[in-house]
């Protein structure tokens, strides 16, 4: 009886010991010497591995932070300035503050604004739909609504509003990693500077067609009339290819352009409700 126990004990211990030696040799032979700082930087990073920094993952960014002397170009959009400041302090390097950004969907063409002209029945992918044709509305530039941006978002920040079939960004969840910007085959999504109270003013249209054509397919399309640009006191608005663009770096959120837009393509978000102002009807504006 005891001999069996002794025998098993010795053999198991022997095998264990042998394996331990092998493991030790292997670990010594294949040792990778790595800067311990990398692990410390990784610990600070948010571990979302989203690729928003331009690197494959958080570890790759840490390696870059540790190895490069000038890290002013490196930035983790998810962690933001506080995380970058912490890393800079740890490594004794400097990183300039960057403005936090947020993804903005520049299309407001839900079905009442942009009537459907046909019914898409292919695979649920904007990329495939975009390769096939102009889409199920008259507009060849706007949102296709199949949700490629929703699928790539690692933070659950984008969802399709079932009523409008358009994506909606949750500003608090959005990490500005830019995955959706890359995924959108029509460049509808843009990263814009985040402002206090999540206030935003932007042209919610990417249609580069001539005004009449754009307007025909969508009632809230930008027609490139240039009224907003003329009235902007901060020269933040430019017109290119029949399309107005508000530079979020220059815009002071004065809201002057919003009232000027004849089609309502400029949106103001998260502002308090305006005092009743004389509303000019669309027809008058177009006629003038």
């Amino acid at each position: 009886m005891y001999s069996i126990i002794a025998y098993s004990f010795i053999s198991m211990a022997g095998i264990g010991g042998l394996l331990a030696i092998v493991l030790y040799i292997v670990s010594q032979k294949f040792k990778v010497i790595e800067d311990p700082m990398i692990d410390e930087v990784v610990a600070i990073l948010p571990q979302a591995n989203c690729g928003g920094c331009g690197f494959a993952g958080c570890r790759a960014l840490s390696e870059a932070c540790v190895s490069r002397d000038d890290i002013s170009q490196l930035y983790c959009p998810v962690g933001g300035n506080s995380v970058m400041a912490e890393i800079a302090e740890l490594l004794g390097k400097t990183i300039p503050e960057k403005d936090p950004m947020v993804a903005v969907i520049r299309c407001n063409g839900h079905h009442s604004n942009r009537p459907r002209t046909n019914q898409y029945d292919g695979a649920a992918s904007c990329k495939i739909k975009n390769t096939l044709y102009t889409g199920d509305t008259g507009c060849a530039h706007g949102c296709l609504g199949e949700g490629d941006c929703v699928k790539v978002c690692n933070f659950g920040a984008i969802s399709i509003n079932p009523e409008t079939s358009l994506p909606v960004v949750d500003d608090n969840a959005c990490a500005a990693c830019g995955a959706c910007v890359k995924a959108c085959p029509r460049n509808v999504i843009e990263l814009r500077k985040k402002s206090a109270k999540d206030r935003k003013i932007y042209v919610s249209c990417v249609n580069r067609e001539k005004g009449t054509v754009a307007r025909k397919s969508c009632t809230v399309a930008c027609i490139g009339c240039g009224k907003c640009a003329k009235n902007c006191p901060h020269e933040a608005i430019s017109i290119e290819n029949n399309l107005a663009y508000i530079d979020s770096e220059k815009c002071k959120l004065c809201r002057k352009c919003v009232g000027e837009c004849p089609t309502g393509a400029i949106l103001e978000i998260n502002f308090p409700v305006r005092k009743a102002t004389p509303v000019t009807s669309e027809n008058e504006v177009l006629a003038s």
């Binding site: 459907r116 002209t117 046909n118 019914q119 898409y120 029945d121 292919g122 096939l132 199920d136």
Partner: peptide, 9 residues
């Protein structure tokens, strides 16, 4: 006629 359906082949 209702809206035409469109899909890839």
């Amino acid at each position: 006629m209702s809206l035409l359906k469109v899909s890839p082949s």
